[in-house]
Design a protein around this nucleic acid. Structure first.
Length: 396
DNA sequence: GCAGGCGTAAACACTT
DNA sequence: GAAGTGTTTACGCCTG
């Protein structure tokens, strides 16, 4: 049944692209940005004081880190084409300035993105407001972000579908009950494997992958894939094994994903990175304030505001039927697995669900705030370290 | 050298 | 019937 040709001419034709990609990776690693990112990545939960000190007092690291810091701006706008992952958890997440990816963008337009298909799919799904997308929209998202595929052989779509089918990380969910909205089903990320995907993202050369991943500030949202019974039983074979379920990081439990005490997982962070330093700062936020406290606070706030509060975007606001808005970002976002027949006469249950959704949104917002706080802490720490170091040098 | 992850191609069934 | 979608199998490359 399988191909006789194996690596086809297509594959061979891609070889130069692969070289480019390889070169690209080198570029990523050569640049100060990823190195800076690496430089500050914590290697373990707690770095021993000496090594920590070494890292912190290393001027090269500092230099690079400060270089890095000049790159990102809070609230910067625009989407770096090749690094959409920063946006995974929301549009308000601070991002690197697109300028720092200018060169990469140029390259990426013609070269293969350095993400595996599973990650691309993950990013696409996560980018959707409701964390679920039909295959077609996954194509669109990838095409939009990675123009490379516009000119790539159509086989990549096959690969996407292949990944969706095979990869345990992805679950097929029914579209809205009793409705037939075009072909195919919606696909979402299996929450169980989400941390693993995130971890896989961390391994990517793009610093923003980790630096600006906003850890879930709330318990896993009840998404379509969680509401709906997966259409199929866990059937998938090896692809999902990339992400050993048992060794996965529990981001909910320990939202400092970058900090992993499991030596087996440590290789994932073999190179310390600025990205996770930011995350570390974020994680160190636990010393600043308890996430739970924020949950509580936000929860209370949301309850207080749920009876008419405004100004906070809820998915419900954009509850446009996918049928009506097939191309819009909002479309499938809101409709899947929600019986639209309920909308005409919002029941208490519907209202409760709505409140819950707003609640979740607020919790996520809290996460973003914590995230910002982490970055702020990170910046503060770096600046003070820089000052200390420069003072020391002046004295010498 | 081996295993696992990944990308790719292809065949087939099913749905729209 | 065509096109899109989903599943499965097979193979080669790359990396640890």
């Amino acid at each position: 049944m399988g191909p006789i040709t194996g690596m086809t001419p297509d594959k061979k034709a891609e070889a130069p692209e692969a070289e480019k990609a390889a070169g690209l990776r080198q570029i990523y690693r050569m640049g100060s940005l990823p190195e800076a990112v690496d430089a500050a990545r914590p290697k373990a939960t707690l770095v021993d004081s000496e090594s920590a000190d070494d890292e912190l007092t290393n001027l090269n690291w500092l230099h690079e880190s400060t270089n890095l810091l000049t790159y990102f701006s809070l609230g910067s706008e625009g989407l770096p084409i090749v690094s959409p992952i920063y946006d995974i958890e929301g549009d308000n997440v601070p991002s690197f300035s697109p300028s720092c990816y200018q060169n990469l963008e140029k390259i990426s337009a013609t070269s293969k993105p350095p993400y595996s298909f599973s990650l691309l799919i993950y990013m696409a799904i996560e980018h959707s407001p409701n964390k679920s997308l039909p295959v077609k929209e996954i194509y669109s998202w990838i095409l939009e972000r990675f123009p490379y595929f516009a000119t790539a052989p159509t086989g990549w779509k096959n690969s996407v579908r292949h990944n969706l089918s095979l990869n345990k990380c992805f679950q097929k969910v029914e579209r809205s009950h009793g409705k037939v909205n075009g072909k195919g089903s919606l696909w979402c990320v299996d929450p169980e494997y989400k941390p693993n995907l995130i971890q896989a993202l961390k391994k990517q050369p793009f610093p923003s992958a980790l630096a600006f991943y906003t850890p879930p500030a709330s318990p896993p949202r009840i998404l379509d894939c969680e509401k709906a019974k997966p259409l199929k039983m866990p059937k998938k074979r090896s692809y999902g094994s990339t992400f050993n379920h048992h060794s996965s990081i529990n981001l909910q439990e320990n939202h400092s994903a970058a900090i992993n005490t499991d030596p087996k997982e440590d290789h994932n962070y073999s190179a310390s990175s600025m990205a996770s330093q930011c995350c570390a700062s974020r994680s160190s936020m636990s010393s600043l304030s308890s996430v739970d406290e924020v949950y509580e606070f936000v929860s209370k706030t949301s309850h207080a505001g749920s009876d008419g509060s405004e100004g906070f975007h809820s998915e419900v606001d954009t509850d446009i039927d996918y049928e009506d808005d097939p191309l819009g970002d909002s479309g499938y976002a809101a409709q899947p697995c929600v019986d639209t027949s309920d909308k005409s006469q919002p029941s208490k249950k519907a209202l409760k669900e709505l409140c819950q959704e707003i609640d979740e949104e607020l919790k996520e917002a809290a996460g973003s705030l914590l995230h910002l706080a982490g970055i702020s802490t990170c910046l503060g720490s770096l600046i003070s370290t820089a000052k200390t170091q420069s003072q020391k040098q002046r004295k010498k």
